[in-house]
């Protein structure tokens, strides 16, 4: 018998008989009556409390903010999506304040050292945010691969102001996650951090040292 069969058999042939059924009577339902403004405020407050930076911008001036943020950090380059609308807008803007623009359009195997050592910042889209915990929902895609929001020291995330959910549960339900999960789905709440040395917080231990959220349509 395989280990699989042995384990399942032990679980099925319990000495105490079948485990008493547990009704799912405690079905979860989220009740949060936050207005759009409250959700944004709460998101911002919590994101800032974990060292994230939040900028409110309009649909037209967000690229100025992006350029500003990068300039302040002296970023030499910026990794952007090619297909996603934010990438298209950045390219189309031809903004003079932006550094060299890069695309993640080759398999990681082809340019690993460059990504790890030479990319200063990346900008990605988000699938929204969660007000309750100050969290971004990030679903990496072929256009915005998984390491894009992880390896460069600065991660800039673009958030549509009207895509802020109250709770994680609400996001799962309204976006119907259970019907098909992506290869990788992420909740991101602040820059990478650790408290493993005597409970003292330090940022950027493995992932980005900085997380900057540009909220578009928050004017």
């Amino acid at each position: 018998m395989s280990a699989r069969e042995q384990i399942l058999q032990r679980l099925r042939e319990r000495r105490d008989g079948p485990v008493p059924e547990v009704p799912a009577s405690l079905t979860t339902s989220m009740v949060r009556d936050w207005s759009a403004a409250e959700k944004l405020d709460r998101f911002q407050q919590l994101m800032e409390s974990v060292h994230g930076e939040v900028h409110r911008t309009s649909a037209t001036d967000w690229i100025d903010t992006l350029a500003d943020v990068l300039e302040k950090r002296g970023a030499r380059n910026l990794l952007i999506p090619r297909l996603h609308d934010i990438g298209a807008q950045i390219l189309a803007s031809d903004h003079p304040g932006l550094p060299e623009l890069l695309h993640y359009d080759a398999p990681i195997e082809d340019w690993r050292p460059t990504l790890f050592n030479d990319v200063d910042a990346a900008v990605t889209s988000t699938r929204g945010a969660i007000a309750e915990t100050g969290t971004l929902i990030v679903w990496p895609t072929a256009d915005e691969p998984r390491l894009m929001s992880l390896v460069p020291p600065v991660h800039i995330a673009i958030l549509e102001a009207d895509q802020i959910f109250s709770t994680f549960q609400e996001a799962i339900a309204l976006q119907n996650w259970a019907s098909r999960m992506p290869t990788n789905a992420l909740l991101v709440s602040g820059p990478s951090k650790t408290a493993d040395i005597e409970q003292t917080l330090a940022y950027g231990v493995h992932g980005p040292k900085e997380l900057i959220v540009i909220v578009v349509g928050a004017d």
Partner: peptide
């Protein structure tokens, strides 16, 4: 008291039920 899951007290709805033996 079985609460519906919710973060904050004012947001919750509660129902009082007899405990079913199983739970």
């Amino acid at each position: 008291i079985l609460y519906f899951y919710s973060g904050i007290a004012v947001d919750s709805t509660s129902t009082v039920l007899q405990t079913p033996e199983q739970v």
